[in-house]
Each structure stands twice: as structure tokens, then as C-alpha cells.
Design a binder for these strands. Structure first.
Length: 557
RNA sequence: UGGGAGAUCGUCCAGCGGCAGGACAACGGACUCUGACUCCGUCGACCCAGGUUCGAAUCCUGGUCUCCCAGCCA
């Protein structure tokens, strides 16, 4: 097990604690806006914030940045909580909302006005944009910039009282219209929005902006280290300005690079398109990088946490290989998922010398990685199914599964030898006639002879029928977001293959939704959260097992 | 061409003036009642140019490239 490497944020916190900054206290927060579903990018932030807090004996708050009622909904606050909890983190009741601070935020704004550091601007949005200047030219000051404190106070009060329509006025911080940093060109800190808020109802018609709200919320909560993504780097001077001018407790904002993952997209805008344009079945489609999506796909929360540890934290833009995520998923599931046998593309096998109408039970190990998971019985009979891929009539050199005249082992059962190939009128193989060696019961030959292959199988009369959904990466290119052209064009048309008539061993007949297992030799699967029922089994392929043979076979083509 | 940030194996992350290390990927081998797992091995990087120094990925100077910023979004 690789130990977690250090990172620059941990180093900062370590040093702060060593020098007794904040009396050694560490407090972080995870601050989502409740306007969408959480995805793996959020998982990185969640693991970072909660992880660091835990590591340094501190606390991590869950705080909703709910300052824009037009886009936010209660549904999202609920789903966010469920996702954070599922990921394995606990905010221990510290569930806060920026909207809970509206009154204090208002008072602080009044204070800024009184000190001549904020003013009401009556320019239109358009005019404000024109006054802002460009990246290379300084902005122009608004004619409203020098309104008296009294007038500003009056106007701001009336804004709150609902006397004006949306857009009539805004409150702006008075900083520097010539700053090279656009965020300091008198940023808007309050706007009028006559919209009901999901928590405060119609109590307010003015709402504070992110930059103004976030730093004060951090301050009020006594956050020590306020972690956010790189694009907020040039907002830090504003973060610091507000807290300095207000002369309140001042946390430190630290920025890190957001997560990018190859073969997928992690921007809210793009994820929304996937859903609304119907490229996926919904936010929890197992191909989606949303928390609900990967959960439904069968990724364990622990695997996602391990992944977040392994990708590290730094300031440079980077793209993490999707294969690392899959590795973490396999590593977790290898330890935890019970083994079962399931045949995806059944090929019937008749054991000619096995007595008609009889059956027996064989012992199978539930998880060779964990003896504690015990054993189970698997029924065996004269008619079986094996995987179509496990038989070749004219096998190439490196294929060592079943072929005419060849002997292989059926896992936990017997050695069988292929005697005959039965075809239909179209020449398609419909059935294999085999014989078994009763001496090899359990899977070993008393005479010590070896076979090259061991196949999984299911007894035909005992088999449970199932639908199996084979998922693959959603995009067929490493960075679907990059370059010109629409990322939608890079969708992998083979990202979902639905197989019906799959044959599973009977122990799976009552699989609970979301239960995970390994179909031996195939991959890890999970009973679908929504669709799997005892009368209609549905499994999702979480991730295939590593398969060197597939690689060889592919190369040959 | 304003402001901010970043450049280390194919990918991600360490390093903080003293032998460039780990993980994933790839490749080869051992083992195997899962062609899985595990184990062993191989491949492979300091953006460029100067300078300081006994010694530079690290410090200095100058370049180059990439990312972010002109919402009354967060």
C-alpha cells in the first residue's frame, strides 16, 4: 500500500500548527452551491477538506453557498448531503448556509458604506460592463461612485425594502477601477433579485455576491484554511480586502488545481448537456462521473477516497489517467467483492456421460483474498452454460481454453473434454457435447495431470436469468473537452451494451440492489440500484478484470 | 499586448543546495483451480539559455510555453 505523499497544503497546515497559528486549531469547509449534483471533482475537494481536518484534529463544515436563489433548489441540498455522507464523511451537525448569514452580511455592507468603502451604483449592467475597461485598459469610474454616505445608506436600505426593480441598483465595493485585477474594479457585492430563496423565502430581495459572501462566511465560521480551486486565485485579493476593511477574523485562502480526468468531462455545463440532450439516461447514469453515477456503476466509496489520496494536490493543471481510478476500484473490490459465476454470452454444454436428471452441489470459495467470507454451494448438472468466448473451433497458438478434443477445468467442478460441436442450419454453433472425468470432482486430477485453462460455468436448470449492462468509458478520446469542435462528437457509441439472457449462478437470484460481486474471470458487477428486482435481475459492469488475453486477441485482429 | 498562476518519467504526485523517488500505464518474467490477484524485473523525466556554488530540479537573471480573469454566476 503506497503511503500518501505530502502536498503543499498539508505542508502549510503543518507549519501553521507547529507555530501555533490559530492556537493550533484547523478548520476547513466544503462549500458547494446547491445548483447541481456532485461529481468526482467535488469528491477531490470533499476528501481534501474533510481529510485534512481529520488528520490535524480539526473540523470540516458543510456550508452551502446559496446566494443565488435563481439557480438553487432544495433538491440539490438534499442530494449533496446524501453524496457527502455516502462518500463516508460526517460534518457532525455543522451544516451551515450562507443564507443564514444574510442579516450579518447586510450589516457588514452597511458598515462598508458608512466607512465610504462601498456605494450604490445605478448604472445598468450594460453600462457597468462598459465602464469596467478591458484586460489591457483601465476602467472608468461610475458617476455614482462619489455619492454621499447618507444617500448610499438610504438607497441600500430601500433596495432591501424592495422599492426598486431588479437591476435598478447594485452595491459595489469602492476599490480601484484601474487595477490590473478585474476583480478589484469596484466589484458588485449586492444585487436586487426579486426571487424567492429556497430557505429564506421572500424575506430578501437583495442577495450578496459570492466574493463578498464567501470570505465573511469563512470568517464567521472561524475557518482557518479556506481551500478552493485555481480560478479563484485572482479573487484572493478581494477576499483579503473585504476582511481587512471589515477588520474581522481572517482565514487564509489557498488554491489548488481542480481535477481533470481523461475520457470524461467534469464541468457542470457539459454534464448538464449530457443529461438534457439525452446522451445518458440521467444524472445517475452509470457512465456519468457524478457521485450518483459512479455509485450506481458500483464504484465503492472507499475506492474513490483512495483515488483522491493518490492523485495528490498541486497547483498545476493536469489530467489524471482514468486508468488510475479503475485501478483503485479494482483494488478495493478485489478485497471486498464476493466471487460468483455468471455467463454473459451463454454457450450450451451437454456432459454426455453425466447422468440424466441428476445434480450435485460443489463447494466454491467466496473470496480467495478473504477467508472470512466463507464458502458456498454451487449446483452442477448434465447441462451447463459456458462463455462463448471460452470455446474456439480452430484455436490460435495462445488460446488455451476449450477446443475440440481439448480438456479444461470447470471451476470448482470437473475436468471436461470437448467431443463434438453441434450447429444449426446456418452453421452457427449451438451446443458442445463434452464428457467429464468423475475422478476430478472439485477440480483436481488424482493422477496429477494439468489443464491449461479453468472456465466459469453455470448449471442450466439452476441458472437465474439476468440482464447485464456492459459500460465502457463515455468518451473515446482522452480529452473530450479540449480543442475546437463539440465534445459531444467524442461520445463513445459503444459505451453501453445491454445483454439479456445472461445466466447467473442461483445464489444471485436474490441479489440486493447495489450489492457488488466479481463475476469470475469477467469483472466486477453490481446489482442495479434502480432496476434490479428478484423477478428481473439487472447487473451493471463496474469494471472488467484486467485481461491480457483480450489484448492479445485484439492485436491479432 | 494588463493582472494572476504553473512548467519534474507517457500520466499524476514527491523533492525545498548534496545519489531525482513513488503510484498508474506500458513491457518482460514467476506464481496460479479466475489469462484475475500477488511477487520480481525493465523502460522512462527536471521547459530553454546563462549565472552563483565544491555541488542546482531547488538560488539569481533572461527567455519560451500553458492555464485563469473583462457575470448584477459560483
Amino acid at each position: 500500500m503506497a503511503s500518501v505523499p505530502s502536498n503543499f497544503i498539508r505542508n502549510i497546515i503543518q507549519r501553521d500548527q507547529k507555530y501555533y497559528k490559530h492556537f493550533g486549531r484547523v478548520a476547513t469547509r466544503f462549500p458547494p452551491e446547491p445548483n447541481g449534483y456532485l461529481h468526482l471533482g467535488h469528491a477531490k475537494s470533499i476528501c481534501l477538506n474533510f481529510g485534512l481536518a481529520a488528520e490535524f484534529g480539526g473540523t470540516c463544515n458543510l456550508r452551502y453557498d446559496d446566494t443565488n436563489p435563481a439557480r438553487e433548489e432544495l433538491e440539490y441540498v438534499e442530494s449533496i448531503k446524501a453524496d457527502v455522507r455516502w462518500l463516508g464523511f460526517d460534518w457532525e451537525g455543522r451544516e451551515y448556509y450562507a443564507s443564514d448569514y444574510f442579516e450579518q452580511l447586510y450589516d457588514f455592507a452597511v458598515q462598508l458604506i458608512q466607512e465610504g468603502k462601498a456605494y450604490v451604483d445605478s448604472l445598468s449592467a450594460e453600462e457597468i460592463r462598459e465602464h469596467r475597461g478591458t484586460l489591457t485598459e483601465p476602467g472608468k469610474e461610475s458617476p455614482c461612485r462619489n455619492r454621499s454616505v447618507e444617500e448610499n445608506l438610504d438607497l441600500f436600505r430601500r433596495m432591501r425594502d424592495g422599492e426598486f426593480e431588479d437591476g435598478a441598483h447594485v452595491l459595489r465595493a469602492k476599490i480601484d477601477m484601474a487595477s490590473g485585477n478585474m476583480n478589484l474594479r469596484d466589484p458588485t457585492i449586492y444585487r436586487i433579485r426579486k426571487v424567492a430563496h429556497h430557505r429564506t423565502g421572500d424575506q430578501w430581495c437583495i442577495y450578496p455576491m459570492y466574493d463578498y459572501t464567501h470570505c465573511i462566511s469563512d470568517s464567521l465560521e472561524g475557518i482557518t484554511h479556506s481551500l478552493c480551486t485555481l480560478e479563484f486565485e485572482d479573487h484572493r485579493p478581494l477576499y483579503d480586502w473585504v476582511l481587512d476593511e471589515l477588520a474581522v477574523y481572517h482565514p487564509r485562502q489557498i488554491e489548488f488545481a481542480r481535477l481533470n480526468l481523461s475520457f470524461t468531462v467534469l464541468s457542470k455545463r457539459k454534464l448538464i448537456r449530457l443529461v438534457t440532450e439525452g446522451h445518458v439516461s440521467g444524472w445517475d447514469d452509470p457512465r456519468m462521473p457524478t457521485i450518483q453515477g459512479v455509485r450506481r456503476r458500483g464504484y465503492p466509496a472507499g475506492a474513490i477516497r483512495t483515488f483522491c489520496d493518490r492523485i495528490g494536490v498541486a497547483k498545476r493543471d493536469s489530467v489524471v489517467d482514468f486508468a488510475l481510478l479503475e485501478h483503485c476500484v479494482r483494488e478495493d473490490l478485489n478485497r471486498t467483492a464476493p466471487r460468483v459465476m455468471g455467463v454473459l454470452r451463454p454457450l450450451k454444454v451437454v456432459i454426455e456421460n453425466y447422468p440424466q436428471g441428476e445434480s450435485e452441489e460443489l463447494e466454491a470459495i467466496n473470496n480467495p483474498e478473504d477467508e472470512g467470507m466463507g464458502i458456498r454451494k454451487v449446483p452442477f448438472s448434465r447441462e451447463l452454460y459456458i462463455e462463448q468466448d471460452d470455446f474456439m473451433e480452430n484455436p490460435p497458438k495462445k488460446f488455451f481454453r476449450l477446443a475440440p478434443g481439448r480438456e479444461v477445468r470447470l471451476r470448482y467442478a470437473y475436468f471436461i473434454t470437448c467431443r463434438d460441436v453441434i450447429r444449426d442450419e446456418n452453421g452457427e454453433i449451438t451446443e458442445l457435447r463434452c464428457t467429464y472425468d468423475p475422478e476430478t470432482r472439485g477440480g483436481d486430477a488424482p493422477d496429477g495431470r494439468k489443464v491449461k485453462a479453468t472456465l466459469h460455468w453455470v448449471s442450466a436448470p439452476h441458472a437465474a436469468d439476468a440482464e447485464v449492462r456492459l459500460y465502457d468509458r463515455l468518451f473515446n478520446t482522452e480529452s473530450p473537452g479540449a480543442g475546437k469542435g463539440d465534445f459531444i462528437e467524442h461520445i463513445n457509441s459503444d459505451s453501453l451494451e445491454v445483454l439479456t439472457g445472461c445466466k447467473l449462478e442461483p445464489s444471485l437470484a436474490d441479489a440486493a440492489p447495489e450489492s457488488r460481486c466479481q463475476f469470475e474471470r469477467l469483472g466486477y458487477f453490481c446489482a442495479d440500484l434502480r432496476d434490479c428486482r428478484p423477478d428481473r435481475l439487472v447487473f451493471n459492469r463496474t469494471v472488467p478484470l484486467r485481461d491480457p488475453w483480450a489484448k492479445i486477441a485484439k492485436k491479432k485482429k
